[in-house]
Computed example of a mutant assay.
Amino acid sequence: MQTVTLTGRQVPAIGIGTWHMGDDPLKQEAEIAAIQAGLDAGAQVIDTAEMYGSGRSETLVGKAIKNIPRDQLYLISKVLPNNASKAKMSQSLDASLKRLGVDALDLYLYHWRGGVPLVETVDELERLKTTGKIKAWGISNFDTDDLKELWQLPSGPMAAANEDLYNLGSRGVEYDLLAWQTTHNLPFIAYSPVSNGDQLGANLTTNANVLTVANRHHATPYQIMLAWVISRPQILAIPQTSDATHMVDNVTAGNLKLTADDLKLLDQAYPAPTEKQPLDVL
């Protein structure tokens, strides 16, 4: 299974995303079963946020991991921009930890840029590290210019990861962002790695080239899209599903190795960018 190194720890390159999970009480049992199936299949990373369902996603994750040894998990959550201040962040973090039922996060992300000065957010994230409640911090929805600005701050290069949208149909980050992160040893976390169930997602799963590659590997189109995302080093994909069988398929996609011919076919269907594009955000 392909791996990435986050904060000095090697983890499988496909984790579990939880956006939109926890919102419907009727789906809770299935969602918990899906998360547990993913962990049983080898996943370690679970990505959530205080924004997701106003905390309901974190609560759901807390129920799913209640009996899982903590050292088998790599937990990521995120702080909202309006809570990313010296006055509010500690309280926000404590609430996330309480919902998750844990003492510390492995990685705490600044969800997207807001009105709080970046230096204040970074300084508070660094301070929270000293409390032991977070082992590391990072950012999300940052583009290349944002990262360059971050790196000018005294503690900016302490960032442990950047999480952005990335999938076969949305390759804008390849123009300069991925190379910048590679140069600066900053791992990349890909959210919506099989798109977001929209028209693009439907097109991806029915594309002739995607289906050709899927047939070669006796895999689903979704598995091929995930294998494509993590075919580059130091990229973690966090697909979301509430279906246990689909979850296992997602995680085991980490075992697929795409060939040069596979990658060429996929490039022909969905070419790499030739100019800078605005950062895709959901």
Rank of each mutant, 00 (worst) to 15 (best):
Leu6Cys: 12
Thr7Ile: 11
Ile14Met: 08
Gly17Met: 11
Gly17Asp: 07
Thr18Glu: 03
Met21Asp: 06
Asp24Ala: 13
Leu26Gln: 14
Glu29Gln: 15
Ile35Gly: 08
Gly38Cys: 07
Ala41Cys: 10
Gly42Met: 11
Ala43Gly: 12
Val45Ile: 14
Ile46Pro: 10
Gly55Lys: 02
Leu60Phe: 11
Lys63Met: 10
Pro69Asp: 10
Arg70Leu: 08
Arg70His: 09
Gln72Asp: 13
Leu75Gln: 05
Leu80Gly: 00
Lys86Gly: 00
Ala87Lys: 12
Met89Ser: 04
Gln91Leu: 08
Ser96Leu: 10
Lys98Ala: 14
Asp103Ile: 05
Leu107Gln: 13
Leu107His: 08
Leu107Ala: 05
His111Met: 07
Val119Thr: 07
Thr121Ile: 08
Glu126Leu: 03
Arg127Glu: 04
Ile134His: 07
Gly138Met: 10
Asp143Ser: 12
Asp143Cys: 12
Leu147Thr: 04
Lys148Gly: 00
Gln152Cys: 04
Gly156Lys: 09
Pro157Gly: 07
Glu163Thr: 04
Val173Pro: 00
Glu174Cys: 08
Leu177Ile: 06
His184Arg: 12
Ala190Pro: 14
Ser192Glu: 11
Ser192Tyr: 06
Pro193Phe: 05
Gln199Asn: 11
Leu200Pro: 03
Gly201Val: 04
Gly201Asp: 09
Ala208Glu: 15
Val213Ser: 11
Arg216Trp: 10
His218Tyr: 08
His218Thr: 15
Tyr222Ala: 15
Met225Trp: 00
Ser231Pro: 03
Leu236Phe: 10
Ala237Lys: 12
Ile238Phe: 08
Gln240His: 03
Ala244Pro: 13
Asp249Cys: 05
Thr252Ala: 00
Ala253Lys: 06
Ala253Arg: 09
Leu256Asn: 09
Leu265Phe: 05
Gln268Ile: 09
Ala269Phe: 03
Ala269Ser: 12
Ala272Trp: 08
Lys276Val: 07
Val281His: 08
